[in-house]
Each structure stands twice: as C-alpha cells, then as structure tokens.
C-alpha cells in the first residue's frame, strides 16, 4: 500500500488546503475499495505492476487534483477573444514600431551601434525579449484580474446592438471627399514652394538656403500625395473598392520611404545662402538646424516604416477578403471583384 500512500500524498499536495483531508479520505476509500475488489477477484494480493496500472488509470496526481479546482482557466472563453485582440494590437502598435525604430536607429545613427555587430544584435534582441515579456505579462495579468471580476463589468451586461460598429465593406464617401480636399491643398502648397518658399525661412532666409542637390527630389515628392488623391477620387465613385485604398497607401508609403532614405545622403540640407559669409553665431545655428532636419528625416522614415507595415497588412487582408468573396461568388458584387 506504500504506492497508494505516495499517490494520495502527491494528489494532496495540489489540492486546496481546506479540502485536502476530506478529498483524500474519499479518494483513498474509493481506491482501496477498487483494490479490495480486484484482490477478491484474483484471490491474491495485487502485485506492484497491477497496482501501478490501477493508479495510472486513476490519472496523474496533478490532473486528479486539478479537477477539484474551481477556476480552471486563467482567462476564460468569454474574455479570450478580447485578450487575443489586445495582444495583437499591442504587438502591432508597440512591438513592431519598437523594432522599426531600433532597426532605423541602428542603421542610420552610428552612436546606436556597438563596435561589434554581434553585440549590437544581442543587445537589441535582449531588449526586445524583455519588452515582450513585460508587455505580454502585464496584459495577461490585467485580463486574469478582469476574468475574476467580469460579472461586475457592466459593459458585458448592458449593451446596445445599435452601438456596434458598421461592417467596413466600403470606404466612406465623406472620408474620401475630405481626404481629396486635403490632398489637393497639400499638392497646391507644395507646388507654390518655389515661389513663396523663402517665406518659410522667415528672417533667416537671407543667410541659409536649401542644398541644390535636394531640388532633384522636389517633383518626385509629389508622387505619394498624388497617388492618394487618385485613390480618393476613385473611391468617391467606387466606395466598395476597399482594397484600392490599402494598396494605394502601400504604394505611396513605399515611394515616400525610398525618397526619404535617398534624402539622408544629402547632408547638409541647409547651406549658407549665396556668397554670404556667416559669423560664428549663424554658423552654429546652421549646424543645429541641419541636426534638427536630420533627426526629423529619421523620425519621418520611422513613421513611414510603421505606416508601411500597417498598410501592407491591410492590403493583404483586403486582397484575401476579395479572393474569398470571388470564391463565394454571390457574396460579393462583381464591381468589387474587379
């Protein structure tokens, strides 16, 4: 019976403290009754192998004790979809941007690189893992607490179906019209820069001017907003082409990223205007201004990278939805599939 006692002791360890004696007495009696019945049928005491088989059939101590626990899941089926959604949002909204910022800083800012590339990689990887553990742990802890108080959460008890968001099966025309107006104003402002650009520099216009090498990129920089403007025009007429918005933004981001990465090679961005001889104060100001422009371009590159990832995800999702729709035939109007 030593094996049985060992088994019961192992089960006891995992049981709720207040119920341990009660449960073990009942379970022990059941197992002893089974052994007695088996021995009576065999006409001899059970050997060790037979006892092992009987206990294995009863189940692992952890599994047996687990059946007595009230709460089986850290996060139950009601909250799990929300938990999973929040984790995805956190991954996309924090970890992906963090990764992009780290990559951009490591590539473009030498002070962020260690002397050994492997050290740079190891340091970045360690920080990334720490971030994942802290963030995912915090979200899980928050949901585990919510799981235990969810009956008190009024949002799950009182809700109105009319307040649920509408399906995103078309691009809002109002959104397209306002977007188009903004795009046109932006393009017009950009085109007016050669004539009124000096006004932007204000009182320093007489001292500094743009590096002439940057002029090559003046017109290409109109491509991203122009692509978006065309998409907005089309979506006013064909709001059901949701894939077009995602694809146009993806294309626009890709071109913008290419241009801004190219711009990083044209440092200094601002140079002394004409033949002006700058005094020490203006020379120092010029250095600082160029630093500000450098960092601004870096921030824009990071922003575009994040937007690129989001828009790539949206494009794939829209194309998948479109391909599913075309497979289902009647589920999607022919005009949307085109």
């Amino acid at each position: 019976m030593e094996l049985l006692d060992r088994y019961l002791q192992a089960v006891r360890f995992w049981l709720p403290r207040k119920q341990q004696d009660d449960i073990i007495a009942e379970l022990g009696d059941d197992l002893r009754s089974q052994i007695e019945e088996r021995e009576s049928a065999l006409g001899r005491p059970m050997n060790e192998d037979e006892l092992v088989t009987l206990l294995q059939q009863a189940g692992h101590p952890l599994w047996v004790a687990g059946r007595y626990q009230k709460q089986q899941a850290l996060i139950g089926p009601v909250l799990f979809p929300l938990y999973s959604f929040v984790l995805k949002i956190v991954a996309l909204g924090y970890l992906v941007p963090w990764l992009v910022v780290w990559i951009v800083l490591t590539v473009f800012v030498p002070s962020h690189r260690a002397s050994d590339p492997m050290l740079t990689l190891a340091g970045g990887w360690a920080s990334f893992c720490t971030n994942i553990i802290v963030i995912f742990g915090s979200v899980t802890l928050a949901f585990a607490i919510l799981e235990r108080v969810q009956s008190a959460v009024s949002a799950l008890q009182q809700w109105d179906p009319r307040k649920l968001p509408r399906p995103k099966d078309r691009v809002s025309r109002v959104e397209s019209v306002f977007g188009l107006v903004f795009s046109i104003v932006y393009i017009a402002w950009w085109l007016s820069l050669p004539r009124y650009g000096a006004l932007i520099f204000g009182p320093i216009a007489g001292f500094f001017s743009l590096n002439p090498a940057l002029h090559t990129w003046y017109l290409p920089l109109l491509a991203p907003p122009s692509i978006v403007a065309v998409q907005q025009c089309v979506n006013i007429l064909r709001p059901q082409w949701t894939w077009l918005r995602a694809a146009a933004q993806l294309l626009s981001d890709s071109i913008a990223l290419f241009i801004f990465i190219a711009l990083t090679k044209f440092h200094p961005y601002l140079i002394p205007a004409g033949t002006a001889n700058l005094d020490a104060q203006h020379t120092q100001a010029l250095v600082k201004l160029n630093q500000v422009v450098s960092w601004s371009i870096l921030c824009v590159i990071i922003g575009i990278c994040i937007a690129l990832i989001v828009h790539a995800y949206q494009t794939v999702r829209e194309l998948r939805r479109m391909s599913k729709g075309s497979r289902n035939g009647a589920a999607m109007p022919a005009s949307q599939a085109l």
């Binding site: 449960i23 379970l27 059941d30 197992l31 009863a58 059946r67 007595y68």
Partner: peptide
C-alpha cells in the same frame, strides 16, 4: 464514470 470525474462533480 471514473473517480476523477465523479468526486469533483459530487462536490
């Protein structure tokens, strides 16, 4: 019905 199912159910 096995004991691992019955006793928690009774409880």
């Amino acid at each position: 019905i096995d004991e691992g199912t019955l006793y928690p159910l009774l409880r």
